[in-house]
């Protein structure tokens, strides 16, 4: 079994109100110089089979990610 981590982020140009809200709150807390905050999600899976990364890529295409609004990255955790 391989521990696979998928990182999903809103695509550039897609409204990310969570990121905007976090950015505003950081500013109010006195953290200067912070910009372009984006909030995404991380999905962890235990995957078997011969090619777990290829399997997870297919899962991303078919369910885990909406390619219209999200980008993703798949990697095996060591």
């Amino acid at each position: 079994m391989t521990r696979v981590v998928v990182t999903v982020m809103p695509k550039a140009g897609v409204l990310d109100p969570q990121g905007q809200t976090v950015e505003g709150a950081l500013g109010r807390l006195g953290f200067g110089g912070v910009s372009d905050v984006r909030v995404g999600k991380r999905i962890e899976l235990e995957v078997g089979g011969d090619d777990p990364l290829a399997a997870v890529h297919e899962m991303c295409e078919r369910l885990l990610v909406n390619a219209l609004i999200e980008d993703y990255d798949v990697r095996a955790e060591s």
């Binding site: 109100p17 969570q18 609004i69």
Partner: peptide
């Protein structure tokens, strides 16, 4: 076509 995202107001 398209997708629905969280409201701008959250």
């Amino acid at each position: 076509p398209g997708a629905l995202r969280p409201n701008a107001t959250l």
